[in-house]
Amino acid sequence: MSFRYRVATVFGGSGFIGRHLIKRLAKTGTVIRVATRHPSTANFLRMNGAVGQIIPIATNINDDASVAAAVQGADIVINLIGILYESGSNTFQGTQADAPGRIARAAKAAGARRFVQISAIGADANSASAYARTKAAGEQAVLEAFPEATILRPSIVFGPEDGFFNRFAAMARIFPALPLIGGGHTRFQPVYVGDVADAVMRALELPEAQGKTYELGGPRVYTFRRLMELVLAETRRKRFLVPISWSMAELQGRILGKLPKPMLTADQVELLKSDNVVQPGAATIQDLGIDPTAAEVIIPTYLDRFRVGGRYSQRAGGYTA
């Protein structure tokens, strides 16, 4: 595959989406800088390219000079950084609102030709959720600094290393029931991580993608209840699905949110009150020339490790305790 870009800087490249994107970028021959707080944690990415092609570099996204150094000489800049909950100095405001603007300003000053910002479906400046508000603020800051930037808003992203299906499959292995927050009626449109990585690549290639926002969803819409049923079917476990009222979920979120790695926060409960699906009239993943992959095709390839007896168990279908 030929590619007209020579140098790319990817912020958050060692994360879930990043590891899939780096593989694709490396095949184009592009030199890739992986901007991260801890370069040693990104060394595994080097194996995806030729010697010296993929270079982890220490970067502080809260420091103008550090960000400027990371993007110096880059043709393209991609920001994948995001958090699901606040922890210590990692705040929604700093990570999802301030940092994207800082990165975009530095990219524009460095002469980068393309910028891709990963946001999220539901980004809304008026949302009651701090996550959604700061995602929207990050988009605005990016477009103010780099009007030609492409914004990609995925729904829940799934794949072998995801934090959604894996989390609930792990819970089903331990607990007798799974929670249906708000009754489990919230709708989602899960999108495969490989399709999201392909969408980034297409956004870099297509001239018409400049300055546009795309909402990335899979081919099917599911309720939260249906997603939990999929988890149980793939792990071959029988568990109760227990509806949890919004008020009870908010209380649980406030309590669990105090843990170092919370399973649920009050802000996440607020997010769950709104459907997480592609909005009518939005530009979509299909507009980028990608036919999205259904969750049922991919999740059996990695949730089977949660089955009783493990991935290679000969236990035939049906549910177990």
Score class of each variant (00 low, 15 high):
F164L: 03
T41C: 03
K23M: 08
A294C: 00
S274C: 10
V191M: 02
S245Y: 08
A74Y: 11
I156N: 06
Q96Y: 02
M1H: 07
D63R: 10
P39K: 00
R102H: 10
T223C: 10
A197C: 10
K238M: 09
I61S: 09
L216H: 08
Q72Y: 10
F224W: 12
D198Q: 05
Q252N: 08
I118N: 11
Y214N: 11
E205V: 04
F168H: 14
I32M: 03
L152A: 01
T41K: 15
V116H: 00
A199I: 01
I156T: 02
V200Q: 11
I151D: 07
N276A: 08
R220V: 08
A128R: 15
R102V: 05
I285M: 02
P39E: 00
V297S: 10
A65R: 14
N43M: 13
D304K: 15
D304V: 12
P219Q: 01
S245V: 04
P243R: 14
E234H: 12
T213N: 00
I290E: 02
A26M: 09
D98W: 11
A145S: 14
A177H: 01
G111C: 11
A199H: 03
V10S: 03
T59M: 01
F44G: 02
M1A: 14
L21P: 06
I290V: 12
Q72M: 13
A141K: 12
L152W: 02
G217V: 05
A132K: 09
T36H: 02
A69E: 15
P243Q: 13
M171K: 07
N62E: 13
P154R: 03
T134N: 14
P176N: 07
S87N: 13
E215M: 01
S313N: 10
A282N: 07
I118T: 09
G82A: 15
V191C: 02
A110Q: 10
S89C: 00
R4D: 14
H185R: 14
D75L: 03
D195N: 12
V308Y: 06
R46Y: 07
F188D: 06
F240G: 01
P260K: 11
F146V: 10
L25Q: 04
I298V: 15
A136E: 07
Q314W: 07
G309N: 04
A70L: 08
F168K: 11
Q286L: 03
G257M: 04
V31S: 13
E296A: 15
V7H: 09
A70Q: 10
V31N: 13
P100N: 10
V71H: 11
R37K: 15
A172H: 07
A42Y: 01
N126M: 05
A70P: 09
T95W: 09
M248V: 15
E144F: 02
F115C: 06
L180A: 06
E208L: 09
P280N: 02
P300N: 13
T9S: 13
N79R: 04
E139Q: 14
R153N: 11
D162G: 09
D98P: 00
M1G: 11
E86N: 11
T213I: 05
A130D: 12
R46E: 14
R202M: 15
S245W: 06
L45Y: 08
E234D: 08
T186F: 00
P280Q: 03
L80A: 01
R102T: 02
V191A: 00
S127E: 05
D75W: 01
M1C: 07
A177Q: 06
